[in-house]
Amino acid sequence: MHLTDKEIEIMKIVEENARISVDDIAKMTSLTVSDVEVTLKKLEDSNIIVRYAALVDWSKVEEHEGVTAMIDVKVTPKRGVGFDETAKRIYRYEEVSSVYLMSGAYDLSVVIEGKSMNEVARFVSDKLSTLDSVISTTTHFILKKYKHDGTVFSPPEEDKRIVVSP
C-alpha cells in the first residue's frame, strides 16, 4: 500500500508514543484533528497499525518470575507454502510471542515466554521438535535485556563532568 509522507509521519509518532493524543499529533503534523483521526482509522483498518502496546521492564517487578527464550528452528519447507504453514502452526501456541523467518543457518526464530527454564524445555521437546517439518532447534535463554524495540532499559548515566565557569 502506498502511503503519503504525512501518513508515515503519523505512524512514526504513534510508534514512538502510543498514548499521544490526537490533538498533539495534529499539532505536530500541521493537520486537523479530523484528518489525523481519518488517517489513524485508515491505518488501523488496513492492519498497518496492528495494535497499541506498552513496553514493560519486567525485571524490575519482583513478583514476576519468568524466562524468555529465543529458539532457532531449522525447517524443511513444504511445496507450495514454503515456511508459512510451519510458522503458522508454531505461532498458534500460547507460549509463543514472536516468530520470524530468518536468513542464515536457521529458518525460523521463535521467541517464547515461560514460567521456568523447565517449562521452555518441555515446550521445545513436547511441542516444537515434534512437528513434522522441524529438523533441529537451538534454544537461547535471555539473561538480561539492555535494549528492546529502541528503548534502553537501564537508567541514564549521570553526567560526571565537572562544571567549569569563568
Rank of each mutant, 00 (worst) to 15 (best):
D72H: 04
D5E: 15
P77R: 02
V99G: 10
R89G: 03
Y100L: 13
Y146D: 08
D35L: 12
E44G: 01
I71T: 02
D35G: 14
D132V: 05
T137M: 07
S59Q: 06
K127W: 05
S116G: 01
D23R: 12
A121Q: 09
K6H: 04
V110G: 07
I8R: 14
E15F: 11
I25T: 03
V67C: 05
W58L: 12
S34W: 09
R92Y: 07
I8S: 06
I8H: 09
S34T: 14
D84W: 00
L101W: 00
T29E: 09
E44W: 02
V124Q: 11
E9S: 07
T138F: 13
F141C: 04
K147F: 05
H140L: 14
T4S: 14
E37K: 14
V61H: 02
T68L: 02
D132Q: 12
G150W: 10
F123K: 07
M28W: 01
D57I: 05
Y146N: 09
T32P: 10
L43A: 04
S133E: 15
G114L: 01
V96C: 10
V67P: 01
R92P: 00
V73S: 08
I25W: 07
V33I: 14
T39H: 08
E157K: 15
Y106E: 03
D72R: 00
Y106W: 11
